[in-house]
Amino acid sequence: MKVTLAMKPAAKSFISIEAESIVPKNFLDGTDLSVWRGNRELRLDEVFSVLVEGDADRSEDVEVVLSGETFRLKRVGEYMDGGRITILGNIGMHCGNFMSGGIIEVRGNADGWLGREMAGGAIVCRGDAADYCAAGYRGGRKGMTGGTVEVFGSTGDFLAESIAGGTVTVHGNSGDMAGAEMRGGTLVVHGDCRRPGANMKEGSCYVYGTVQGMLPTFRKIGTVQHGGRTLIRFAGDLANRGKGNLFVKDYEYLD
């Protein structure tokens, strides 16, 4: 089954639309769903032109395609456990929150908290992702616990904060404090980033570019070969338990 949701042009407002009902599973029972703009509840067809082709018995066979000015849509794919969501443009905050299965593809850019506290499944973002990509929630101890997030552009600050499992790959650069409070899982940044692995406990963080503002509390262990690259290996964060692994191509301290 393929569900195409084309967003109708918004009359006036920039107020975001919370659309946690847009998950493949919900379309098995039809399209009588609602979304919220601020404090107003709206029917799905008030916001989107809805087109359903074919039918399906299980969420794995449902594909949802979103088009139009979707950058104001929040919480798409929240608690998704199977199927596929394809977003042709940009997507708003909290896309793929708590997801445990299925695939989300964002062809454009993703706003903050892409794949927050994700437990399984896969997210692919062809553009850039903003702050807190694959991160946890405020005050939470564990962020992402499983699944994969791949961003082909760059990301903002606090990438994969508190990550405890799963794999995050960024092909561009990342901002400040990638992998802060890391306690498991794998984080790979192909470009440059600032202060990765701050206060990390466990897990592995790879930076194939240059680390700026390298933290003084990582102990240099030596060099390793990794996928045809020579990387410098550090153990840290010594301010914390110091059992994490940080591999960098190059680094500079703020000395």
């Binding site: 701050a198 206060n199 503002g213 933290l215 003084p216 509390t217 964060d237 301010a239 703020l254």
Partner: peptide, 9 residues
């Protein structure tokens, strides 16, 4: 942040 981390260590 770096100075605080260093002091902790």
């Amino acid at each position: 942040y770096a100075v605080l981390s260093a002091l902790r260590a």
